[in-house]
Amino acid sequence: MTAHRILTLTLSPALDLATCVPHLRPHDKLRCSTPSYAPGGGGINVARAIRRLGGDALALFPAGGSTGEHLRELLKAEDVPFQAIAVSGWTRECINITNLTDRQQYRFVLPGNPLSSQEQTAVLSALEHLPTADFLVISGSMPEALPADFLPRLLENAQRRGCRCIVDSSGSALRQMLDIGGLLLIKPNLDELSAMLGEAISGPEHLNQVAQDLVAAGRTEAVLVSLGAQGALLVTAEVCERIPAPTVPRRSTVGAGDSLLAAMVLKRASGASWSVAARYGVAAGTAAIMTDGSELSRLEDTERLYGWLAASS
């Protein structure tokens, strides 16, 4: 298999369905628009967004059933390189519904199927046998009932092979991987970071300190905290800065965080500084908000917004 500098891993992939309804009321028979389908799951979306931004990444994920086959076909249609690991459980579906009355979006996220011990071994084996990548992006929610040693084994194997690891997850999974340390980047949002700490973050200074402590302890080289409409906070050993998000028409938030991470990884892979990479990431995340349904950021929107951010910094 061809070597790729960037590899993404999605342990709970999804087939995303997006549709619209004229109104949203209980008990009514709601007539939906023609649905659109897209590949889903954190790492898969990162690989898709990298492709849309002119880069290249290999998406690795478990997939099963007819929904898993549909997911594969959609990735082929987008020309996204991938390796799917066959599993017994059907790939989950997630549903995004836009209420046309007020343009509010409702996101129904179904749980991922557990991976059997044999399927977990297949994931680890696939990572071992792929050509070593420079960057491994572990992104998205985790399947239920993963054993406590699975993520540490995964991370330690990747690091032993010289792969720099980037994590976009939450809860115990994020905590476990930070405890191993040596990560290149984590990208939590404010709620995910608070949940990991087990306490509310009281304000900007507290947030800065939490991120700086993670870097100083060697748990990660960089922290990028997504702050939604307020942009993002970037913290490294040398930098602590807030990056504003440009104001744009909001159509859908699906995939905004994945677009942000994809753009940031792509820039770092090309040798850009953390500050440049973070601004390009915020531009891509903002660009994704301008698109409908599960569509990710467009290159032309990302470049235009990045130009604005670079000029205003």
Rank of each mutant, 00 (worst) to 15 (best):
E192M: 07
K187Q: 10
A158R: 04
T132P: 08
L190G: 04
N189R: 02
L178A: 12
P188S: 00
P131L: 05
G140L: 13
L183S: 08
P188H: 04
D168T: 11
L185A: 02
G171V: 12
L146H: 06
S116H: 04
A158Q: 01
A126V: 03
E156I: 15
S139E: 06
V137M: 11
S139K: 04
L115N: 05
S172K: 14
E192Q: 09
E119A: 05
N189G: 05
D168I: 10
E144D: 14
V137K: 08
L136I: 10
E156R: 15
A126Y: 06
R161W: 10
L184V: 06
A126H: 01
L136M: 11
L115Y: 05
S117R: 12
L155H: 13
R153W: 07
S170F: 02
G140K: 14
I138L: 15
P143G: 04
V123E: 05
S116R: 05
T132H: 08
D149E: 02
P188V: 02
L174M: 13
P147Y: 02
R175T: 15
P147M: 04
L136V: 09
L127Y: 03
S169I: 13
D149M: 07
G182F: 04
P152E: 01
S125C: 12
E119L: 01
V167S: 03
L178T: 10
H129V: 11
G162K: 07
L127C: 06
A126I: 00
F135S: 05
C165Q: 04
D134N: 08
Q176F: 02
C163S: 11
E144H: 13
S125I: 09
A145T: 12
I186R: 04
Q120A: 06
A122D: 02
G171C: 13
S125Y: 12
C163E: 11
R160K: 15
L185I: 01
I180T: 09
N157M: 15
D149Q: 00
L190T: 02
G181M: 12
P147K: 03
D191P: 10
D149P: 03
G162W: 07
G162D: 09
D134T: 08
T132Q: 10
Q118S: 14
Q120T: 09
Q118I: 13
A145I: 07
F150P: 00
L115S: 03
R175F: 13
V137W: 05
A145H: 14
L154Q: 05
P143T: 06
L130E: 02
E119D: 03
V123L: 00
S116N: 08
E156A: 15
L136K: 01
L178S: 11
C163D: 03
S169R: 10
A158S: 09
H129K: 11
L151R: 02
I186L: 00
G181R: 11
L174I: 09
I186Q: 03
S139Y: 03
M142Y: 06
D191W: 12
G181N: 11
L154M: 15
N189T: 07
P131D: 01
P143F: 00
R175D: 14
G182N: 01
L190M: 03
L184M: 08
S117E: 14
G171E: 15
S139R: 00
A122I: 01
P188A: 03
L178E: 09
N157A: 15
G162H: 08
L183I: 10
P188R: 01
R160M: 14
